[in-house]
Each structure stands twice: as C-alpha cells, then as structure tokens.
Amino acid sequence: MQSRRPYSLEDADRIGAAIGAALRPGDVVLLSGDLGAGKTTLARAMLKARGLAGEAPSPTFAIVQPYAPPEVDLPIAHVDLYRIEGEDELIELGLDDYLYDGALLIEWPDRLGAQAWGDALALTISGGGDTRVLTAEVPPAWEARWPLR
C-alpha cells in the first residue's frame, strides 16, 4: 500500500508521534529525502512518542544512536548511514541485533544496498519548503496499524 500526503515540518510531531506509537519490536523504518528534508525531525518525533524526554542528537557522526528503557519504552536505534561508503561497513554496525527486542529508524537507507529489509516501512520526504510530500510504502506487516489513513 502506498500513502502520499502534503507534509510540513510542523506536521512532523503529529506524524512522527503516530508512527512512533505504532512501532513494535522488529520494525524497521527507512527515512529518505534530501539533506534538510526533515528526516531527523521525523525520527525525533517518533522517539519522543516512545518516551524520550530530552533532545535526540543527530546520529550523523555516531552513525548509530541507541535508546533503551527507561529512556524510552521500546529499545530503538536511530541510524544515519550518510557517511557509509560500502556495504562491508554495515556488517560492523550489527543492525540486525537491534531487532530482537527493538526497532530501527534508518536515515539514508539507499546506503544499505542488498542489506535492506523487505518488510520495512519506507518513508520518503520530497520537495522543499511548504511544498513537501511524505510518501509511505506501507508493507503488509504495517497495513493494519498504519496510522495515517
């Protein structure tokens, strides 16, 4: 199922909260868009929905920023693959390990190559300014709980 809707940064808290509340262990959310599109803003709203009280730093330099209880109610790893140059670097990150009891929020998923998860929720922010569009590729595992109908 595909969902498209107008999107502004003001919508990020509401949309991120709805998606964040629907997260379950084993979920992967792929966040695509140009630099400055609002991927990190959307991820922060998802983390806030799971109980994160403070500001979530961008994982651009750390690459993987993990969050665990009691900081959040579901373990979540916020991942930024912008600096990843090859699939061999992904193995060192151990991303699958986060899915045993938690979820992954992955920015720049195009860097995953063949490593991508077929059942991931794929969100793409396109456009800029007030004319952005959020497109969601909603896999079967998400259809019953997709909050943005």
Rank of each mutant, 00 (worst) to 15 (best):
I76V: 12
R5N: 15
I106H: 05
E85T: 15
I125P: 03
A17D: 09
S8D: 10
G128L: 10
S126P: 15
L31C: 01
E92W: 00
R145F: 14
G51C: 08
D27L: 08
L47G: 00
W117I: 14
V29K: 02
D119P: 09
D101P: 01
D97R: 09
A114C: 09
E92Q: 09
D110M: 14
A120W: 00
G16T: 05
D96Y: 02
L112I: 15
L95S: 03
H78P: 07
S8L: 15
P140I: 13
L134H: 00
L23W: 02
A62G: 12
A49I: 09
L52R: 09
R50H: 11
L104R: 00
T124K: 11
V72I: 06
S3N: 15
S32G: 03
D88Y: 07
G113I: 13
G129Y: 08
G20K: 05
K48Y: 02
E92D: 10
A37C: 08
G38R: 04
G118P: 15
D119M: 08
G128I: 05
L93F: 06
A122S: 15
L31R: 00
E55P: 11
R5T: 15
I106Q: 03
S58F: 03
M46G: 07
I106R: 02
R111T: 12
G86M: 08
P147M: 13
L74N: 05
P66Y: 12
D110T: 13
L74F: 04
A45Y: 01
I63P: 04
V79Y: 00
L90R: 05
L104Q: 00
R145Q: 15
P140L: 07
A21W: 10
G20S: 07
T41F: 01
I84Q: 06
L123D: 04
V29T: 07
E71M: 09
L90V: 07
L90A: 10
P66F: 12
P147C: 12
L121P: 08
Y98I: 05
I125K: 04
F61C: 15
L105Y: 01
I106W: 02
D110H: 13
P57F: 10
G86C: 11
P147K: 14
E89N: 14
L105P: 03
G54E: 11
L31Q: 00
L104P: 00
A22I: 09
G113Q: 12
